[in-house]
Structures are given as C-alpha cells and as structure tokens.
Design a protein around this nucleic acid. Structure first.
Lengths: 341, 341
DNA sequence: CGGCTTTTCCAAAGCGCTTTGATACCTTTA
DNA sequence: TAAAGGTATCAAAGCGCTTTGGAAAAGCCG
C-alpha cells in the first residue's frame, strides 16, 4: 500500500492525502478524518526512504560504538544507555541506527555515514581524552551529542556527562575520612576521558589530605570482572596492601569482591570498597541496602537525555548545549573505618 | 557531492558513473578506474535513501528488542549479540537498525517496520514459548531469523538456538552424579522459550534418576543479580535447603554466590553451583580456571551467525534454515560432591 | 569500404514521497 | 454585481539513485 494507491482509493490527489496525513491546515477536517481512517484501516505507513528523499531528513539517529579490534569488548553500559535513548526516539518517531566502528577506520566511517545520509544526527560514545571525531563531525556539519567529554578538544560541542572528577574526589575523601591511607584506584582505560577525570579527582583528594600516591596502587584497563579480580589479588598480595579500593565499574568491583572473599577478607571491615555504579538494570547494586558504597548515576537516564538533546538540536529548539550530572554518593555496607595497624 | 555532480565533473553520464561504481561489466576499465579514483578522492558515497528507493533494498537489518514496560530491563547478552552481528553486517555493507518494542504494541510495531521499508530483514530476539510475531512476520513476507525457538509455533521458520534442554539435562545429571539430591533451579522467565527448555532438561534428568521434584526449589524470573541473591537466601534458609543450584545466567549466579558467602558457605564444597554462561566480554567466567562450572555458548558467536543466516536468506543463497548449537559443559571450581548429611 | 557485431556510453523513466504553483469554487465586501 | 479574498483541491516537479532501451563509436570480416 503506497500513497498513490491510497489516494486512488480515496479518490483524492496524493497532495491532499499527504497533507491530511502530515497535519497541514489547508485540508478540510472531514477529508482529513476520512484519510486518517482509511490509512489506519489499510495499514498504510509512508515509505521511510521515499519520505526521507523528499524531505531531506531521515528520521534516524546513529549511535557509533567504538570497538577496539583486540578486545572485541562491548561496554556493559551500552544496553541500558541505548534503551534509554530508544525510548526518546520512539516517542518522537525516530529510528535508531547502530554502527560498530573499529578505532583505526573511524575517519572513513564517519564520512561515509554523513555521505550515505541515513541519519540526521549522531551520538558519540566513549570519547577519548583527545578525540579526533569531534573536529571531524564539526567539519562535516553533522549534528551530534557526545556522551562524555573530550578534555583536550578545543572545540565547542554539545555533551552530557557526569561529574566524574568530583564523584571520585568525594569518594576518595570519604575513604580518607574513614582513616584509609592506602587507597587503590582500579580505573578504566585512562585514554578514555571519563577515566582520566576520575583519576584527577582521586589524586586531588589524596593531595588535599597530604597522602602520598603510589603507582603500585593504580591500574587502568578495560573494566571487566577478571581485571578487578586480578588487580585486587596482586595488590592484596603486596607487602603493604591497600585497605580500600576505588573502582570504576560495578563489574570490576565484583571481581575485586571475589578476590577479597577468596582471601577471607570481609568487605566493609577488613577492606573497604567504593565503586562507580551505572545503575544497570540487570546488575542493580543490591535492593534495599546497597552491596557497594558507590557513586551512582543512571546511564539509562543519560541515554534518554542525550537523545532528547540531540533531537532538540536537530529541530532547532536547542537551548542546552551541555549537561553535567552529579553522581550520588550512596553508602552501602562495603565501606567502614580502616582497620588499625 | 552527489552522482550528478560527480558525473559532471568527470564529463560522463550518471549511468556510466553508476555502473562503474557498482561493478557492471559494460564499462571500459580505464573509465572505471577514473571514476573510482574521483569518487574516493571527492569522498563520494551514494545516498543510501535514494539508492534504497531505486533498488527496493535498504541494506539494513532490523533488530527488534522486546521491552517489558514494567521492568525496563535490557538483557545483558544484548550488547555482545549485537556486536557479533554487527561485524557480519559491516563486512557485507549492511546497516543495523534497532527498535525497542513494548510487548503490548508488538503487532503494530512490526507492521510499521514492514511498511516503512527501511529494513530488508529482521532478527527476532527473545522468543516466547508461544510467539505471535512469527506468524505475523510470515504473513508480512518479511525475511527473519529468530534467535531461539518458539516451541508452540507450528510454522516453519529459520532460527539459531543452543540446545538448552540438553545443556541443562547434562548439568543436572552432573550434579546428580556428584550425589546431589536437592538441586535448585533458578531459571529465567519460563514464558521465554529458552527458559522453558532448560526446565524440561532439568526435570528430565531428575526423573531419569528417580529424584523427586520440589516446587520450592524452582524459580522463574527476570535474570538479575538481585533475583539470584534473594532466591538463594530464601532457599538456603529453608529447613531442608538445596545443596546445589542450577542457574540460567551468570549475573544471577553472582547473586547466588553473594548469598552463599554471606552465610559462610563455600561454593564447590558446601554448595555446588552450575550456571549457564553466555561468554560475555565484560563478564568472562574467570580466566584460567573458570569460577563457575557452566554450560557455555558464546552469544557473540550466535549473533554473528544469525546475521549471516539472515543475509544468506535475503540474498537467496540460503541453505541452512536452522542451527542448533551445543553448549559446552565446562568444569570449574563451583561444583563438588554433595556434603554428607 | 560497407555491413556486421561488440563495446561504450547516454537520455529518460521510475522508485514513493513532499512541495510548489495553479485552479476551481465559495464567501465576503464595496 | 463585480472585485477581492479564502478555502479546498490538484498536477507536476524534484529528491538522488538505478535501469531500460537506444545510439554512437569502435572493431571485425569478407
């Protein structure tokens, strides 16, 4: 069923039918009603390609997911982010297009996306400290919103991010207040902007309290469970082990917990743990009382909001060009005063 | 840069340029080379919408993710599945389109997808025991591949699935061989086809050994960590607790482990645990020695393969219409002989 | 060199929609 | 009553590509 058939069936011109369907004023209300009824009854939906060609809009948003060829890793937050964004898209009649791009061919990939013209805007995932994609997208004149920031980018762009620095500064300070002095940082890859900021926050709190920093207590890797386990094992087996861990992801924190339990160490008593918690749907941080003390911020919410920002931008009703969310510091049972030496 | 501009620039007709780019034989090799060079130099990529309109193909595959409105849950396997599929798509020049659909408006959603015509085929996620989508898609004449099966569907359709029944039957038998007699099943929602099959396998093994089934030892819910924790707590606090758990997801298994540890029970000694393991990238089941004894099958691989099956189907070189993968039973340290009463 | 096929290229139609510019038909107003 | 202004509809052009049906150019043969 296409427009032509529908309008023949109604004995109206395509123009009128099209206008009736798209809510233009210059069509009689009775006619409009008739058209709308027929359309829904005959199950007519306009062909998206044709509509896109004619309007120059594709009514789709692209999500470009960086894939490091070595790891074949998918960030576990991805599902929740996308589900949040998807909700906004549905409400506004947009489709969501996914593209996985290996680091090395980012440039061509983005250019191609622009040229192919099947998205009206892009959400940029996983920005690095220095991220060439931003300048590229500006050059291409493609609307985009970055989930995160890119510290070393001079350009102005629209982003939504959580206050990673402050969150980790607060968390570190909280541990220091509990008299911990050897606090380990199990971070994400520090070429990633968020991880870098977290480290800055961590270091700031240490420095503020005059505590020394120890490179042996800082790790930076892809945030898997095994990474948390391995790091914790190695650190706990050091002569002078940390009494607290600050961790960038709940998956990794679970690995750390495993290492603790394996050693008969009690979390919140022998060793304290704070993790960042993206509030993932399948991996909630406990129910009533949180398992982990955590810096929490819903990534689903961030997805929803970044989608909204992008749509506003595309439809020229943009006002807010950046959005910094504060993470909550929620206290669970994984932290407690440092054990006396 | 569009075809017209490109062909003007080359002083050739659009026809010739189009043919040169699409590898048709009726164009001089020198001309073709000239065209190809200019295209890459001027960064020309054909407009996907226009191309789609002209060819009737959209070169995109839709993934339709069911979202239960209450839970707002995203299956954690989703990211890995999609990343596997995405790889196949990239290799073949296909895009991936994501649609989140709430259960109640499935029918309209699928009809709309068909009518809008921006995908050439669909991957169906999370099939239920009885799933109306299958008949609908057949009626709509839309190529599709189901990730999983739908037991109660009479129709013939293309699917890829793991042998859930056998996997859980083997796992249960393994536990029985270890002299466990009270084996709990912490399953996914049993309206889901995979969960139903797992239950059938579990029951078959029990029956085969003449062991009684106890409804108090069987749960069926959305597979979160908290669900595992809560179920295990409740069961362990029963007068006659299970000595072994069979669990449908590694996330849930982690919750069970948390409950065990909280009670000072040692996994693999006091209580045995087997879980299904989708081999998620960020949640590997340990490194050298597996944390959990598990029935393992890579969901990333399944994603890759289902994408391939669908593309083959669309391009008429389909041969294989169903694919049953066996899960490995890998032995970790979470299982051991049942403790003597 | 004329007639034949083969090679190489082209003009124009068409995919399904939106949108511009016109055209009828009614009202209103001077 | 004629001119002016609305209202409701339409025919046709155009979005950027593919593809059909030719036509010109080139190569081959006797």
């Amino acid at each position: 069923m296409n427009l032509k058939q529908l309008s023949n069936h109604l004995k109206l011109s395509q123009t009128t039918v099209s206008r009736a369907l798209n809510g233009y004023p210059e069509v009689n209300e009775n006619t409009r009603k008739r058209v709308l009824e027929a359309a829904s009854q005959l199950n007519y939906s306009p062909n998206a390609r044709a509509k896109g060609l004619a309007t120059g809009k594709s009514m789709a948003i692209g999500h470009v997911i960086p894939v490091s060829a070595q790891h074949e890793m998918v960030n576990p937050i991805f599902g929740d982010f996308v589900s949040g964004a998807g909700e906004t898209y549905s409400e506004n009649g947009y489709d969501m297009m996914l593209t996985l791009v290996a680091d090395q061919d980012e440039e061509t990939a983005y250019r191609k996306i622009k040229a192919r013209g099947n998205v009206d805007g892009i959400i940029v995932h996983g920005p690095k400290l220095t991220d060439s994609r931003i300048d590229l997208l500006i050059e291409l004149d493609m609307p985009f919103v970055v989930h995160g920031r890119a510290t070393n980018s001079g350009a102005e762009f629209t982003w939504i991010d959580i206050n990673n620095r402050r969150a980790f500064e607060r968390a570190t300070r909280y541990l220091i207040d509990l008299r911990h002095t050897r606090i380990a940082l199990i971070n994400g890859l520090e070429e990633m902007d968020f991880a870098h900021r977290r480290r800055v926050g961590y270091l700031a709190a240490l420095e503020e309290s005059g505590l020394p920093t120890d490179p042996a207590l800082m790790r930076s890797e892809e945030m898997t469970e095994v990474y948390g386990y391995r790091s914790a094992c190695e650190m706990l087996d050091m002569p002078n082990p940390p009494t607290a861990f600050l961790i960038s992801s709940i998956m990794t924190a679970i690995g750390v917990r495993r290492a603790l339990e394996e050693r008969g160490l009690q979390m919140g008593k022998d060793v304290s743990v704070i993790t960042h918690d993206d509030d993932l749907s399948y991996m909630k941080n406990g129910s009533d009382v949180p398992i982990f003390t955590a810096t929490r911020s819903s990534v689903r919410q961030a997805g929803k909001q970044s989608a909204q920002m992008l749509l506003d931008m595309i439809n020229n009703k943009a006002t807010q060009t950046q959005c910094l969310l504060e993470a909550d510091l929620i206290i669970g049972s994984s932290t407690g005063p440092a054990p006396q030496a």
